[in-house]
Amino acid sequence: MMIDVLYFAWVRERIGLPRERVTTEAATVADLVAELIQREDRYAAAFAEVTALRVAVDQVLTGFDAPLSGAREVAFFPPMTGG
């Protein structure tokens, strides 16, 4: 399946791009992270401390154990600082 993967704030800076289309058979967000880490060092650096990150699937905040079946968009970012 094809998924748009988005990165924000320092995750975007470490990976070096704001979004990309990924072909994956990952069942969960955690599986997708494991695949990305295998790609290149910059992904490993961005995902080194997964507890410091948040994830949204199809624009809804969720957990790393969330399933990806049917998902179109997955976003990774640090804890939010609005207001």
Binding site: F8, A9, A56, L61, A75, F77, P78, P79, M80, T81, G82, G83
Partner: peptide
């Protein structure tokens, strides 16, 4: 609203 949008709305400040 303020408490929630501080940590649940996707904004990041640099």
């Amino acid at each position: 609203l303020m408490d929630y949008l501080k940590s649940r709305a996707p904004f990041w400040k640099k």
